[in-house]
């Protein structure tokens, strides 16, 4: 049997395999596409509602009648909560802009599949290497004010050990998260490096 005949056999075996794939109608595609848009709008709406409730709850906490026996700790709490709200707004806005970038990309870019694979790997690498910057840094001032301020001004000295534990757990948790993300980010970079060694077709 010649190589060409062998190739034909392999290809015909592949092409004549029984398929369990359902037939997808145009109406179904319309329906699913509009449902995806609707789901996306609902998720966005839910996110804004959650943010609104958090801001309202935070403001109520800040400005309601304070307990009389906590002294300067009241100001620490107020500043800390306001900073946490501002940080949360920053995080939500950043998430929103990233979701929008992801959403719009599908509609406008159909490129060679290797380019698409590369840009997907780059997106994931950047997410894992840099997400801590936009997800943790905005919350850092609030955490510092609440913890350091609490250590200094909390009227209950027995709480000091609690603050110490919070700091230890927060630092350990953050370090583990950042380390894990960096490890994943470097794995994506490794895959990108391997792609870089392939010879590409010149773009038309």
């Amino acid at each position: 049997m010649t190589t060409n005949e062998e190739n034909r056999m392999e290809k015909s075996a592949w092409q004549s395999q029984p398929l369990d794939a359902p037939v997808v109608s145009l109406a179904f595609v319309h329906h699913q596409a509009s449902r995806l848009n609707k789901d996306f709008r609902q998720q966005k709406g839910l996110m804004y509602w959650a943010l609104g409730i958090m801001v309202a709850a935070g403001l109520v906490t800040v400005f309601r009648d304070p307990p009389s026996d906590i002294g300067p700790m009241l100001y620490v709490m107020r500043v800390g909560i306001l900073l946490a709200l501002a940080g949360a707004v920053c995080v939500v806005l950043e998430m929103r802009s990233r979701a929008r970038m992801l959403q719009s990309r599908d509609d406008v870019t159909v490129t060679q599949s290797l380019d698409a694979y590369r840009s997907e790997l780059e997106r994931r690498r950047d997410y894992y290497l840099h997400s801590w910057r936009w997800s943790l840094l905005p919350m850092l001032p609030a955490a510092l004010v609440l913890i350091v301020g609490g250590m200094i001004y909390d009227p209950h000295p027995e709480m000091l050990s609690h603050y110490g534990l919070i700091v230890v757990f927060a630092v350990a948790f953050t370090a583990a998260g950042v380390w894990d993300h960096r490890r994943k980010g470097h794995a994506y970079q490794g895959e990108l490096d391997a792609l870089g060694t392939l010879e590409h077709r010149p773009r038309p």
Binding site: T111, Q112, S113, L114, E199, H200, R201
Partner: peptide, 9 residues
């Protein structure tokens, strides 16, 4: 043409 690799590759 679909993938973007060179034909030789």
């Amino acid at each position: 043409e679909v993938i973007g690799l060179s034909p030789q590759n």
